[in-house]
């Protein structure tokens, strides 16, 4: 499992892209349906969200199992999440809006959900740039602080999804619930750490 985890992550993360390509060329009887651009937007956006949430599972899994290898594919997962978010935006700008930049500006100004999604994508850029070992060493403690941006970014991504759903908000709510659980776990860990530090000083009542 430990040796397999990275290949598995590569495979799982590239599978949605492979499905899109298979669909575009209508291989193996697959197709993206009569509105392929919308389908590509949907798949890339949701894959990005899925990968962000999976990334956030790494720390709780390490703490639950005591196995540190859970966090090993974290960088790969994060970079994949960023790549899908970028692809999502490029498909939107190039295929959906056909590179009408004026229209893109208008959409950003008028549609809060597009603004929210764009902010999330922009905020992912510094995290991707500083994902190398060298940057990690150079930034030291600040690296961790910077990368905590992943929490609000994921929340923005879910918000972006929730805001454009027409009626069935169940799926965005599931994402929100998962994020809440993952954040609650971290709050609990932080609280336990603080408590363990304070225990000797605390007097019994």
């Amino acid at each position: 499992m430990q040796a397999l985890i990275k290949p598995l992550v590569w495979l799982g993360a590239l599978a949605p892209l492979a499905l899109i390509v298979v669909g575009i060329f209508e291989l193996a009887g697959q197709s993206l349906g009569p509105n392929p651009i919308r389908e590509i937007l949907h798949v890339t956006g949701k894959t990005s969200l899925n990968l962000l949430l999976i990334t956030l599972c790494a720390t709780p899994l390490r703490e639950l199992t005591g196995q540190t290898w859970w966090v090993r594919p974290r960088r790969l997962l994060g970079l994949m999440a960023f790549s899908y978010a970028l692809l999502h935006f490029l498909v939107y700008a190039v295929l959906e809006l056909e590179l009408q930049l004026g229209e893109l500006g208008q959409e950003l100004a008028r549609r809060p959900y597009i603004l929210v999604g764009t902010v999330a994508l922009l905020a992912l850029i510094p995290l991707a740039i500083t994902s190398t070992d060298r940057m990690m060493r150079r930034l030291g403690r600040r690296w961790q602080r910077l990368h905590r941006l992943i929490y609000p970014i994921t929340a923005l991504g879910i918000w972006h999804y929730y805001w454009q759903v027409k009626a069935d908000i169940r799926e965005p709510l599931i994402y929100l619930g998962l994020l809440a659980v993952l954040l609650a776990w971290r709050a609990r860990s932080a609280w336990l750490r603080r408590k363990s530090r304070q225990v000797p000083a605390a007097s019994p009542r």
Binding site: P34, N35, R38, L95, E98, Q106, R110, R111
Partner: peptide, 22 residues
């Protein structure tokens, strides 16, 4: 008159090519 969350100025014609079907 836009829908609050998207523009109604254009439409994607289903079954068209990847580009130019808007």
């Amino acid at each position: 008159v836009d829908h609050p969350r998207w523009s109604q100025a254009k439409e994607r014609r289903i079954g068209g090519s990847f580009l130019g079907s808007r």
